[in-house]
Amino acid sequence: MSNSVLNETKQYLTFKLSDEVFGVDVAQVREILDYIKITKVPQTPDFMCGVINLRGSVVPVVDMNLKFGMNLTERTVNTCIVVVEVKLGDETAVLGALVDSVQEVFEIEPQNIEPAPRIGTKLNTEFIKGMGKREEKFIILLDIDKVFSSEELEIVQSSGNFKSNEINSAK
């Protein structure tokens, strides 16, 4: 993880997945939506929730809980879709992240960010920019460009848990 990224004071938006708090750089957050109907695209993995209509554009939504190997995000009044902009090579893609609840926006100084531990987070360390300290608690600061890199979501094309498997094997 390049340290230069962490050398300036940045604002992070925090959200909760199960009981854990995660942060993303606000510069990459476009808006926060209340939960709306998501249209499932057939023959795609479960963590790919489907697509929503964002003012006329069709935007994919990812269930962050499932993506990080936790249980399916339960729908409550606090369930939100965080719309983020992700760099995919030279392009920018817009994507929705389904989270349990959105917490706050706060500023964090570089000295309060520690590098991600190599083990123990149960997450691919590639995804983690650093661990932010805040009032004795740790917040996992995500590198969403990595989390949503096309290779990460490529599984959409090759796996999927139902018929598409058969189709592929049949070929």
Partner: peptide, 17 residues
């Protein structure tokens, strides 16, 4: 278009609102 993330889903050619 369904966009980059869903580009190779077979049997679906796009979406509409």
């Amino acid at each position: 278009s369904l966009g980059k993330y869903y580009k190779n889903v077979e049997g679906i050619s796009g979406a509409t609102i």
